[in-house]
């Protein structure tokens, strides 16, 4: 309990819709936990509740043993939050932004100065310290942003879509860094993402759909539940072919925007057989290991739409 984040039966409703429906899970310090889900899945609402921006209306949340509903003030002291929208003032320099943040947390003088230098060094932005944030690239801004969130040495780090707007290299670097951070500093890291690749770098993942937590576990174990390989067939008449494949091979198929999708053990052999059986109808076949997007699809029956941001 003391070094955990515990969410129990958490529900939240906006006047027009129900955003969270009886969600329960827990995360330990030293762990990276990913909240994966498409837009409108409730993960942003959950993020806002955990970061103390929205009040809890139903259910309980304990962070490191403190009750979020009643001990919000204490929790804010050890909470580091990185929002999706830039939380830096472009008119201020990198150092000024960090100093401002440090002051909000009661840090000042030499301690603050030392801590700022340390973090700028660590994030490789020390040489840009005196530049205004507005002229930095997206990747650099994001690094400053995370440095800022870590300034007061939080024990819990919450990140909302931290990789949005970053290129693949920067994303990889960030995910690696978070991994190191969680382990060496024993920080609890919780991040939301709408990209299944990002979620796969997490220790554990909670998959959200329309306010419900539909899956919870390690990415590898979740993917193992999909059952074999994922095969995507592009063809001229998907409906007919889908029915025929089901009749002939005994596997269920799902029609998605990309084509006919199915799961099968030993995918390479199945692909050989199916292409041999319908040489004219099939235009292309894609064979792959299941991703968390496939897990989402298996559990909800809906395709996981990636690439859209709020």
């Amino acid at each position: 309990m003391e070094n955990r984040l515990e969410v129990e039966n958490l529900s939240h409703a906006y006047p027009e819709r129900r955003a969270l429906d009886n969600v329960s899970f827990s995360v330990s310090c030293g762990e990276i936990f990913g909240l994966l889900g498409p837009n409108g899945s409730g993960k942003t609402t959950l993020f806002k509740i955990l970061s103390t921006l929205i009040r809890i209306t139903s259910g309980t949340v304990h962070i490191l043993g403190y009750n979020l509903a009643t001990e919000e003030k204490i929790i804010r002291d050890f909470l580091g939050v990185v929002f999706q929208h830039p939380g830096l003032d472009g008119k201020l320099t990198v150092v000024e932004n960090l100093r401002h943040h440090g002051h909000l947390y009661g840090l000042s003088g030499k301690v603050l100065h030392h801590r700022i230098s340390e973090l700028l060094e660590c994030f490789g932005v020390a040489d840009r310290a005196k530049e205004r944030v507005e002229i930095l690239s997206g990747g650099l801004k994001r690094r400053v942003e995370i440095a800022k969130a870590l300034l007061h040495a939080p024990r819990v780090l919450l990140l909302d879509e931290p990789t949005s707007g970053l290129d693949i290299t920067a994303r990889q670097q960030l995910n690696d860094y978070l991994g190191v951070l969680a382990q060496t500093e024993d920080i609890l890291v919780l991040m939301t993402t709408h990209l299944s690749e990002d979620a796969e770098t997490c220790d554990r993942v909670g998959i959200f759909d329309t306010g419900r937590l539909v899956a919870l576990g390690e990415p590898d174990k979740l993917k193992a539940e999909v059952g074999g390989d994922v095969i995507l067939i592009e063809c001229t008449d998907s409906d007919t072919l889908g029915t025929t494949i089901t009749e002939q091979f005994g596997v269920s198929t799902v029609l998605t925007g990309e084509g006919l999708r199915l799961e099968h053990e030993g995918g390479h052999e199945f692909v050989r057989d199916v292409v041999a059986a319908f040489p004219d109808e099939i235009q292309s076949v894609r064979l792959g290991k299941p991703t968390l997007a496939d897990v989402f699809m298996k559990l909800t029956g809906n395709p996981f739409v990636e690439g859209k941001e709020n």
Partner: peptide, 14 residues
């Protein structure tokens, strides 16, 4: 508020 600067002030212990 729109940019998120205010949000980070709001989650600080102030």
């Amino acid at each position: 508020r729109r940019e998120g600067f205010l949000q980070s002030i709001l989650v600080a212990p102030v």
